[in-house]
Design a protein around this nucleic acid. Sequence first.
DNA 1: TATGAATGAGCCTTCATTCAT
DNA 2: TATGAATGAAGGCTCATTCAT
Lengths: 190, 190, 190, 190
Amino acid sequence: MKPKDEKKLDAVVAATCRMAAERGLLGLTLGEIAKAAGIGTSTLYVYFADKVALFNEVYRRAKREAMDFYGGEIDPSAPIKSRVRNVWNRMLDHRLRQHDAVSFMEQFTGSAYMTEESRDFTAKIGEGLLQIVAEGQQQEILKTIPVAYLASFFIGSVRETTRMIRAGTITDSEESRAVAFQLCWDAIRS
Amino acid sequence: MKPKDEKKLDAVVAATCRMAAERGLLGLTLGEIAKAAGIGTSTLYVYFADKVALFNEVYRRAKREAMDFYGGEIDPSAPIKSRVRNVWNRMLDHRLRQHDAVSFMEQFTGSAYMTEESRDFTAKIGEGLLQIVAEGQQQEILKTIPVAYLASFFIGSVRETTRMIRAGTITDSEESRAVAFQLCWDAIRS
Amino acid sequence: MKPKDEKKLDAVVAATCRMAAERGLLGLTLGEIAKAAGIGTSTLYVYFADKVALFNEVYRRAKREAMDFYGGEIDPSAPIKSRVRNVWNRMLDHRLRQHDAVSFMEQFTGSAYMTEESRDFTAKIGEGLLQIVAEGQQQEILKTIPVAYLASFFIGSVRETTRMIRAGTITDSEESRAVAFQLCWDAIRS
Amino acid sequence: MKPKDEKKLDAVVAATCRMAAERGLLGLTLGEIAKAAGIGTSTLYVYFADKVALFNEVYRRAKREAMDFYGGEIDPSAPIKSRVRNVWNRMLDHRLRQHDAVSFMEQFTGSAYMTEESRDFTAKIGEGLLQIVAEGQQQEILKTIPVAYLASFFIGSVRETTRMIRAGTITDSEESRAVAFQLCWDAIRS
DNA sequence: TATGAATGAGCCTTCATTCAT
DNA sequence: TATGAATGAAGGCTCATTCAT
């Protein structure tokens, strides 16, 4: 891509996520994306090689943004539980605020569009979280079982909580977050 | 006159799920489905009105099968924890064994193909589980918080465990199941 | 065709004409015809080799019926004008009463479905009329110009009168017929 | 940006009429039309929403062209008969020269393709002719009967004459036209 | 760079026709 | 004989992509 006009590119990415969240990735056409982004269809080819490239770029941007969101500094002197809660809240915030991007990613992941390159890109996250978990296990605050269990449950907890909030099953408040996080914490603590 | 071939229909349903799991629902064509089912493309129209009808029928069948799988009797005299573990294992078994159908359902749910009728169809599940949860709350064994939290976390636990097993992150053994379930149980017990 | 069941065959012919008149020959399917005739689609192949054969047979039957309708004896001792009026009325009657068949014929004639054989079949009509015209010319009652002019105008007169009646532009009564025929007569008389 | 090519549109319209006249409207495919027009099939969709829209647009163009052809000024000071002959000749000319378009219109009219909009479009013609007829009736030159009879016969006369010429039954010459028109005139004059 | 026109590939769907009972 | 099932061929239409301005 030739990022001549960065704003136009942003518009395309945003439009793609929005449409994917609204109408679904299924049958989403370049024409729709272009119209939603306010440009001509063939202009897309100035920025992306083809549809697959466009989707993968959108994915990579969304992923990077998510990482930036999670990755902010967390006071290493704070107690483990506080730090875990901190990450948990950040992830929840991200999934709620950047819903379009998250929706796009979830639909895109596992689709035939996904490049091997993009697949690799996925793995590199959560290092900050892993750090905390390792420390928590050393201090015997968290269950001393393979990290995968803890990480997976942690993510699952965030995912399900987001789902409930978005479905209206529960409202997003400090209380409900406290309850939901308590489940998560009870699961992973030793 | 040649009677309608029930086996052919089953083959179509199975093929649809298989292809959806392998290549994704995105861009899955009737041609591919028909070839995978070993019939001519136009033969599909003997059994289904159109593509949407086909997908929705596959969905309904998968859902019904899942319900049958979960819905078996569970000894009501057994302790709560045992019963919860029982359901947890059944769901895990189902998701592992009927992975194609589950994968199809997860992709189909929320897609533009989904009929309102099919959407309604979805709601009626999990009553057996809710029964157990209610009893567990009465006995103060489970957290006395809105059921949605517990159910959602429970489902999330199964989902994530399936994911880990299928991804090869962990193997499917009694030990790993015990560990994974312990996380779930610690989360929901009071 | 194997006319095992003559009634069934008649039903097919009638159904074909009816559907052609109602919905048009364009896109008329064997399925529709069969359903309208109250038989299974593939049963048509017991009576006709294929769709083209069916249409041509229907055409030939309609044509034959029309000829029978026109061809009744006309008192040769009656005055020319009376005999011409007689034929004119008969043709008008036919086009009004057997509208389905006539509609089918007009749509079929010139269509790609029409066999050379059927095309030849067409020519042989109107001999009774030609007889009268010839006599009228000998007696110098009709214009002594090539018969084609007279015949063509005569047919055109019937056709247009039918059109007007069916369109509701005029009603079918003795008076209106008298007026319409007068035009025809004035045109062809010497 | 490439501008829409008006010539391409004309080619499509002409090709459609030609094919309809040659092979019949029945079963005329977009592929045939496109090939005859020298463009790709999908290019048709740049100019028309779908097949129905294409046909209706062709119809409207043909109709408009016909009206332009008829509608030229006719010296109002000329005698009625001369003016009627004038119109008669113009219509005959049009039907002979623009045979493709006329053939298309006749097949299209009453077909299932015809839009209500196009149907309305049809009614507005022949006002010039009606004017002359009315004047002829006032002067008691034409039969004082409802105009529909006269108009219908007039049209029928042109139609049949065209048919004869095209079929080779008669040749197109001043003499044959004189004969044919005489029939028409005798029919409608008082 | 930006974009509407142009198009080939491919999909869903229909339908005449054959198969099998 | 009669018919529903099965299907290949073909048509209308969409869309990602290229062309030309």
